[in-house]
């Protein structure tokens, strides 16, 4: 009996790291998402989008072929670049974008690896590390366009990190916990977070758009001014990693969003047990919810142009931050009233 339990634990840990919601699912979802993003944009723009790679399945393997192309391209190291930073930064960026996933449970029993009661705090804290490497990328490239891109990134990060924290704090106040699992349990017994505090949800979504560089905040990579922004000098796999990082971030943020605001694995109860109802089902539900959030966010590409950097920074400081404060106040009122 004891051995069986151990095996189940091990399986769960492995599942956790590799499958749910870890590396494999993240990569598969990112590849799928990039494909769907292009398809969605194409549909709005009255065209087909990717089609010729694997025509039978509607071009679904396009992203895979892009990945292969990135893997086998020639890598160019610019002469003037700070080569160590230039080579390391994308890897770190990618790793730190993956890191929050460790602390995001996608089911009631998924927090074995790092048992902690502060998962919300850890995951949000880790999310804010990635931009530092984005700035290093721009600095190391020795290119004015990259440099301007990284400066813009720095401005934007500072102006949008506080609203992110405020919106999470608002939800933490409502749930009275820093752990995802009780937070989801709270939503099961009460209401989903998006109804409890819609302002916080709005702020979170805006910040998610911003920090993953979706339109209309595609400012650091504004191609009509900055060519490719941060990644101007990158090529081959490093460029691919740089491009995939925002999607990983997007995935992490969408997971957090679905846990904090969309009721997590609701309608599966938190008390469900067994391999299927306790393990797979909640995971699948959370990931589907996150995926829908991601799709909505990538759809914005088809609707918006991009803001100017000063406008985005100003709206961060002058609007979003107040929205965040309002969200916190709403939460406090709710806590007092309930």
């Amino acid at each position: 009996m004891g051995i069986l339990l151990l095996i189940i634990w091990l399986i769960q840990d492995l599942l956790y790291l590799i499958v749910f919601p870890g590396l494999v699912v993240a990569m598969v979802l990112v590849i799928l998402l990039i494909y769907l993003e292009r398809k969605i944009a194409a549909k709005v723009q009255m065209r087909y989008g990717p089609l010729y790679v694997s025509r039978k399945v509607g071009g679904a393997l396009q992203s895979v072929s892009d990945l292969l192309r990135f893997s086998f391209q020639e890598f160019i190291l610019p002469i003037g670049s700070d080569s160590i930073a230039f080579l390391m930064a994308p890897g770190f960026m990618f790793a730190f974008a993956m890191m929050p996933l460790i602390f995001i449970p996608v089911g009631p029993y998924y927090s074995y690896l790092f048992p902690s009661t502060l998962t919300i705090l850890f995951s949000v804290a880790l999310i804010t590390i990635t931009p530092i490497y984005a700035i290093i990328v721009g600095w190391a490239s020795d290119n004015k366009f990259s440099f301007i891109g990284s400066l813009r990134e720095a401005f934007l990060v500072i102006s949008y990190e506080i609203p992110l924290l405020l919106s999470v704090i608002a939800m933490v106040i409502v749930y009275r916990t820093l752990n995802y699992i009780p937070a989801v349990a709270f939503q099961e017994t009460h209401l989903p977070g998006i109804i409890l505090n819609p302002i916080a949800a709005l702020v979170f979504i805006i910040v998610a758009i911003r920090s993953t560089g979706r339109f209309p905040f595609d400012i650091t990579e504004a191609d009509s001014e900055l060519i490719m922004g941060l990644y101007t000098e990158y090529s081959a796999l490093f460029f691919g990693i740089g491009m995939a990082t925002p999607y990983i971030e997007l995935y992490a943020l969408s997971l957090i969003f679905s846990l904090l605001f969309l009721g997590g694995w609701w309608p599966v109860s938190i008390h469900a047990t067994g391999l299927l109802a306790g393990l797979f089902l909640p995971g699948i539900i959370v990931i589907i919810k996150a995926f829908i959030v991601m799709m909505v966010l990538v759809f914005l590409r088809a609707v918006y142009p991009r803001y100017r950097v000063d406008q985005a920074v100003r709206s961060g400081w002058e609007r979003i931050i107040y929205l965040g404060i309002i969200a916190v106040i709403i939460s406090i009122l709710e806590v007092i009233i309930i």
Binding site: I40, K43, V44, Q45, M46, R47, Y48, L51, F299, A302, V303, Y304
Partner: peptide, 19 residues
């Protein structure tokens, strides 16, 4: 209105590409 229009084009059949 921008979002609504985008959504309208997302769901309506409207491709003009020649395959």
């Amino acid at each position: 209105r921008a979002l609504a229009t985008g959504f309208k084009y997302l769901v309506e059949p409207n491709r003009m590409t020649l395959d």
